[in-house]
Every structure is written in C-alpha cells, then in structure tokens.
C-alpha cells in the first residue's frame, strides 16, 4: 500500500469544516455520553454507556452475544434509524463535537463521515468499478478522471488493486469472499469518512482472508478512526489499541487492549476473556 496515495486523499477531507476542529492523534472523536437504547421504546438493550473513542485508534468491542455491542456500533452512524421503533432513550452521542441525534443533523451527511463495513460482505450487483464509485456518484461526482483516480486509490488502500485491476468491469459478486469484503472496505473508504465502523468483518471469512483484512485494518488506522465489533478475542488483541468489554447491555470496562487482556480490572472481564463464559 502506498502512503503517498493516501496522502493525496487527505486534503480533500480536511476541506470539511468539522475535520478542521480535530487535532490529529489522541483527540476524542466519538464521545458516547450516558447512552441508553431500546428497540421497542421499553426494554433497554444498552444501559448508560459512556466512553470516548480517540482519533486514529482501533477500538474493539467485545462481549458475549446479545450484549449490545453491535447495537451501539449501529447507533454511531444511526443505522438503527431504519428500524421504526428503535431509539436512544437517554444520553447523547457526539461525533466531532456534534450531537448526532440533534434534529439539525442530516443523517446522510453523518454517514458520509462515518462509514460502515458489514458482517456479511455485501457488494452491489454491479461491476467492481461501480461498487467503489457508488458513494462518489451519489454525491454527484460525474468527472470520469476523478472517479477513476478515487477508485484506484481506494482499491490500492484496500489492498485489492493488484488482484482486480484487469477486470474492473467484472461483477463484484464474482470475487472470492475475502476479496468481496475488501471491496466493501474499498467502497467505504472511497467516500473518505473520518470513522469506519466494522461489524464483525471477518466472521464469514476463512483464516487467510481474515489475516489480510486484519493487516488492512492496521494499515488503515493511520488515516481513519476504526471501531470494530468482534467475537474473536485473538483478533481484538491483534488489531486493536483499545478494547471495550460489554456485558448485558452495560459497558464493563474499556482500556488499552494489552491491559484488558493481561490485567483486567473487573472480574467479569477476566471470566470472559479466560473463556469461563460467553
């Protein structure tokens, strides 16, 4: 992967006013403040979660099934809006110092800044080129040269360029599973978000493809803030800087990954990572 290519992308995103407010590494870009969330308005699946996620870090959400980690992830780009009755019942989430549930926020603008990669790779039934160009096309980019450049850069950044450069017009569905997931990542980074949310991106992949994606995540974090939900604790140790452990809708612990895995401060965390339940 070429860093110079990535550098040419960055100025574009820095034109946006929100990004100018953010200092490089270390600043809190996602501020979750006492958030509770319910799908039906009554039973809360997340309760009073507070955390800060820092710029250019990889934060892993771990925890047993049903603990609310995916729900929280989907709150961060308001994908839960698609479910009619689901809503935040308490607290607020601030991304780049803006409450994203404020009525003045356009959810479409938000999602341009907070991209998402899904558990099951889901490229569109279009060509590889069109898959990557989609995000830009819907933003109204028509210029062929701009699109060509963005597609190439995104595919390079996703480590897929050398494998597909000769068949950009072939269907995205014809690729292997791992390639399809990397295509989805390329598609996401093509719109140059600040933050990328990944919802168990490797759960449907074989070990070799998983390794590739994990390498990719490590490379991408120099330019993006990444939040990843994973069931695989080894994966969390391999890719993340911070780890947050959720249990029954509550955030039990969030800290440096090395610390969480070597010396957790809570008993439940220790039980979970040592495999006593989960």
């Amino acid at each position: 992967m070429s860093d110079t290519k990535m550098d040419t992308q960055l100025p574009k995103s820095e034109k946006k006013p929100e990004s100018q407010a953010v200092e490089p590494t270390g600043d809190i870009v996602i501020d979750v403040d006492d958030v509770s969330f319910a799908y039906d308005g009554k039973k809360e699946v997340i309760r009073n979660v507070s955390m800060g996620i820092r710029c250019n870090e990889v934060t892993a959400f771990i925890g047993p099934s049903g603990c609310g980690k995916t729900t929280l992830l989907r709150c961060l780009n308001r994908m839960n809006d698609l479910i009619p009755t689901a809503a935040i019942t308490n607290g607020e989430i601030r991304i780049l110092d803006t409450n994203i549930y404020d009525p003045a926020v356009d959810v479409i603008e938000l999602r341009k800044h907070v991209g998402m990669v899904f558990q099951k790779y889901n490229p569109f039934p279009k060509s590889i080129y069109e898959n990557v160009a989609y995000g830009l096309r819907i933003q109204g980019v028509r210029n062929k040269a701009t699109l060509d450049q963005a597609v190439e850069e995104s595919l390079i950044a996703a480590g897929l360029w050398s494998e597909v450069k000769d068949r950009l017009d072939a269907s995205g569905l014809g690729l292997s599973g791992g390639q399809q997931q990397r295509l989805c990542i390329a598609r996401t980074i093509a719109v140059q978000p600040k933050i990328i949310l990944m919802d168990e991106p490797c759960s449907a992949l074989d070990p070799i493809s998983t390794t590739k994606i994990e390498d990719l995540i490590t490379q991408l974090k120099t330019h993006f803030t990444i939040v990843i939900v994973t069931h695989n604790m080894q994966q969390a140790t391999r890719v993340s800087d911070k780890t947050a452990f959720f249990y029954l809708g509550e955030l039990i612990e969030i800290d440096e990954t090395t610390k969480v895995f070597s010396n957790p401060s809570k008993k439940q965390t220790e039980d979970y990572i040592s495999g006593r339940f989960g």
Partner: peptide
C-alpha cells in the same frame, strides 16, 4: 436483499 440497501445507506445515499 436488505444488505444492499443497508450498504447504500451506510455510504450516505438517500
């Protein structure tokens, strides 16, 4: 599949 439209929304499509 729902996942197609979800992916589209996640890319900022209306």
């Amino acid at each position: 599949p729902r996942s197609f439209s979800e992916a589209s929304f996640a890319l900022g499509a209306s």
